[in-house]
Design a protein around this nucleic acid. Structure first.
Lengths: 257, 257
DNA sequence: CTGCGACCTTGTTTTGGATCAATCGCTTGG
DNA sequence: CCAAGCGATTGATCCAAAACAAGGTCGCAG
């Protein structure tokens, strides 16, 4: 595993074309950690071969590029922007199962139907592979398959964490957990930013945390009045007291005053 | 993929030793479907080689064989019995993330710590591999790795379904979904039984569905008085009206009378 | 047989978050 | 400039499920 040196690399919020679409952020200089990605385990020569099998697409905000229940035709690597992944009940209740950012792999779904829908929150760039070629790709790139297994294992861990949140945490604990997760950098070794932008609406946050929009709003307001966070604007968050947020998110009893 | 013909195979509730520990139920005569399992994609000769790398263990009821937060030393294939998989919050709140039955694979966890604990509900038989040999096993058995990826993808789909349940379904819908899932046979092509045994307590069910024990009990009682199910004993369930249960579980509006 | 402990059920009260209902600020388009 | 529309916030009320509280049933050890 080493830097994919001379190839241009996409920045968050910029499109990526050709081979660059498969690239990922530079590994950390100290620990070599990178966000889990389709190709982060591949050598440069393999990247070129893989790029020939892929198409690069730009998805406009609000556009659905994976539809729950439909036959899976492709698999995707998100290279920029953010997408919401969700499931619906027949009466319209929605559960967002995750937000896909740069490096996220979509379409592992086995069987006859996609288990969820994916919709661009903001402009999204994806690198798309034909599903019929997946077998070929896996056979040709053993490192790719190994990496995919690692990706899936990571997602499974995240899904279990989310089940704990949805099944057993209070609204306050859920929002604290969410804000801390959003503050997590793409490369785990980077320092988490104290200030960041939320690309999703309050409705998205509510549907992700199993709450209503009103409860999300009230809870954020309360965290603000308690000086745990600041909200320069509804979509800008500043973490003012990370320690107390961590303790809240982890489900520790709240200290009494 | 074909039957592992002459090898003895474990029955639910019976121990398995030696190579049989790696075996799975007979494939369905009609569709060749089997429960997802470590070895269900392997040829018989590979099974023998793989068996040499594994130990067979019997886990007594109540015993924890994977502990959340500890360094993962092994990975497991459950060959009989049922285990609860759970995460805890510091104050003791518990979320059961799943129940592992015959064929379930445990320990894909990446990184330095197990993401959950696993505890035998009833007597459990597992086939255990040393984690340090995982790399070797994956390298030696490409079909194993492919199967593992399929397993992980299936679990991811189940986890997303559970997130929908925990985030957006009512108590009634959760219990209906749970009962139907418990009625699902190990081989998907088999007809689901109309009557089955619940190996877990009401407390386990509550911690799996994000409810309290009282709500689970009341909801089951109500389904019983409405003749959707019968409960010959607390642990024996008979599905009396599968269609209405499916509709309930799927989140369709309840029909008015 | 009796007493104990686990587990389950049922009744009552409480409450966290949902629901219903405005209002406020932006942005956009006329 | 104003109107319309959308997202966010805030307030008032409601309710599904939690919490609290008894009992009941069963299996088992003494």
């Amino acid at each position: 595993m080493r830097p994919i040196s001379p190839a241009p690399r996409p920045q968050l919020g910029t499109p990526a074309t050709g081979m660059a679409a498969l690239a990922v952020p530079d590994p950390c200089a100290h620990c070599d950690a990178r966000p889990v990605s389709v190709c982060s385990a591949l050598e440069e020569k393999d990247l070129h071969r893989l790029a020939a099998l892929a198409e690069v697409l730009e998805v406009a905000p609000g556009k659905t590029f994976i539809a729950e229940g439909e036959k899976p035709e492709h698999f995707f690597n998100v290279t920029g922007g953010t997408a919401r992944l969700y499931k619906l009940l027949p009466d319209g209740r929605r559960q967002i199962t995750g937000f896909a950012r740069q490096g996220h792999f979509l379409g592992l779904a086995v069987g006859e139907a996609n288990a969820f829908s994916a919709e661009a929150l903001e402009k999204v760039w994806v690198c798309r592979f034909s599903r019929t070629r997946l077998r070929q790709v896996l056979d040709d790139f053993p490192a790719f398959e190994r990496r995919l297994l690692g990706t899936a294992a990571n997602e499974l861990v995240a899904a279990q964490e989310q089940m704990l949140l949805l099944g057993r945490k209070t609204a306050r604990e859920r929002v604290a957990s969410f804000l801390l997760a959003q503050a997590r950098p793409l490369r785990p070794c980077d320092a988490p930013p104290g200030r960041f932008h939320l690309p999703m609406t309050r409705t998205d946050i509510a549907d992700y945390l199993g709450l209503t929009i009103e409860t999300v709003s009230r809870t954020m307001t309360r965290l603000k009045t308690e000086k745990l966070i600041a909200l320069p604007s509804p979509a800008e968050v500043v973490l003012l007291d990370r320690a107390r947020l961590e303790s809240l998110a982890g489900g520790f009893e709240e200290e009494r005053f």
